[in-house]
Design a protein around this nucleic acid. Structure first.
Ligand SMILES: [Mn+2]
Ligand SMILES: [Mn+2]
Ligand SMILES: [Zn+2]
Ligand SMILES: [Zn+2]
Lengths: 133, 133
DNA sequence: TCATATTTGCAATTTTGTTGCATTTGTTTA
DNA sequence: TAAACAAATGCAACAAAATTGCAAATATGA
């Protein structure tokens, strides 16, 4: 339940935040800013920007940036918070339907680079998704 | 030489384009828009936007999008063009110096996802770079 | 129910990106 | 090497996106 999620992250439960979360929960794919805007209905843009910022800070949502200037957002799984914001999953963007999905991998690739201390790896894939293929 | 690069991609050799390329060639890391702006000196913003668009279209530069809304650009290696814009290298962002590097990997990871037709994979890594570590 | 910090909504402003158009410039051809 | 012409530039106007300050509203704990 959305109110619980907000409480868990120690921020206040407000109608606007609940509304934004409901838009996220309604879909299986990641949302662009304009997806969100049209999902919300009437809204004040400043409040939306601030809500997104808060959700990102608190580890409630994460950003997905893909080649082609595609920028989306998706709910984090349990466990993310202000300090820990790590996702061991892949982001797939479908060139056909333009949807972006978070996909868990059976095995997350390990990469070692001499001299570099790799703290986190993100994988972005493009192609044709299950639904479109 | 920069003029050759432009000719290879069938676009005209102009002072502005040469200047922009020289900024890219001066550094080993990827550049943000404002890096470019300060590197160029005086410039017209419209021309810069159009130059960037042309360079992206032609496969002269590529965009790098990293978690945290980080957006940079870097020169492509030989072989990219309007139709083929694929890079088998990793993008590493250093949390300490904030620089972003294109790094060739000895072996590029293969990923298979049931039902998905993966055409391209991008890997972004974060941590501490060789210089800072 | 009250006190208070948080959140919201609005106006004003700034920053970023786009469009149209006249002028200039690079390249090709004769 | 001059002329022809398409491509590129620079400027002004515009449009869209994002930020800031502040007063009013509201969620929460006491
Ligand atoms: Mn994700
Ligand atoms: Mn690169
Ligand atoms: Zn699809
Ligand atoms: Zn570094």
């Amino acid at each position: 339940m959305s109110a619980e999620l907000l409480k868990k992250h120690k921020i206040r439960v407000t109608p606007f935040r609940i509304k934004v979360l409901s838009v996220f929960k309604k879909t299986h794919s990641a949302l662009s800013l304009s997806d969100l805007e049209s999902g919300i209905g009437e809204f004040d843009r400043v409040t939306l920007y601030r809500t997104i910022k808060t959700f990102l800070d608190k580890g409630i949502i994460h950003e997905i940036l893909m080649p082609g200037d595609i920028k989306k957002m998706a709910l984090c799984q349990d466990g993310c918070n202000t300090h820990l914001h790590d996702h061991k999953h892949l982001h797939f963007h479908c060139d056909s339907c333009q949807e972006t999905f978070c996909i868990d991998l059976p095995a997350y690739p390990e990469i070692v680079l001499d001299g570099f201390d790799i703290k986190q790896i993100e994988i972005q894939a493009q192609g044709v998704c299950k639904n479109c293929g």
